[in-house]
Write a protein that binds this DNA or RNA. Structure first.
Lengths: 105, 105
DNA sequence: ATTGTATATCGTAAATATACGATATAAATA
DNA sequence: TATTTATATCGTATATTTACGATATACAAT
């Protein structure tokens, strides 16, 4: 991220921002939705679902993994991705708390 | 945004991403929280609340305005900002719908 | 009219994000 | 072992974001 002052913001606000950042690209939103539909957390399929090259999709997957929203597991020559349910529940909680704090729910 | 393919993603996913992007910096989260606390939507106060320069805060305010999450109204030499409650409700709705879609709530 | 105050905008630098093709890696299969 | 397949990473180009100081703007007050 192009901000150099992360330490100067409240911990919770940094967490909210980090979660929001992971959701801040339509490709990544689509990836989450796709992973939710296919319980059998397919992987190369994601590439064919998106209008983006394989390497770009791989970058988005890395972003989602970095934020903890998905997990990837090697399975032979391929990698199976799946949602990280706990972290996503936490994301939902944290965002709802924000809207509650600002009285918009 | 550094993506050139917005038209190729579902409208709803673009909306989610755009909302998330507005929330993707702790300074902007803090601004929303501050505006919620002070109903009298103060403005220059925001600058003194944040560890950032006046011009940088102004940029963040512009981002929030662009996303529609806040409104700014000129009042003499100063500008009063306040939350855009309807848009924030919509943001909450849309994000909750995402978490519902992916079964993480 | 001049001065002061509050914001926005400009110019700029540096970091990060997006996107792709090409290449490397790792594992299954022939 | 060689080949195919699936994915990640590298290199690179471009766009965007973050951040600041300096300057412009717009209004109020002197």
């Amino acid at each position: 991220m192009a901000y150099s002052k992360a330490g100067q913001f409240p911990r919770m606000d940094v967490e909210i921002a980090s979660i929001a950042k992971a959701l801040a690209h339509p490709a990544r939103v689509m990836i989450l939705q796709h992973l939710a539909r296919m319980q059998t957390c397919i992987c190369g399929d994601i590439v064919s679902e998106l209008p983006l090259s394989q390497s770009t999709v791989s970058q988005h997957l890395r972003e989602l993994k970095k934020a903890g929203l998905i997990k990837g597991e090697v399975d032979g020559p391929r990698v199976c991705y799946c949602l990280n349910i706990e972290k996503l529940r936490r994301a939902n909680l944290v965002l709802n708390q924000l809207f509650k704090d600002i009285k918009c729910y």
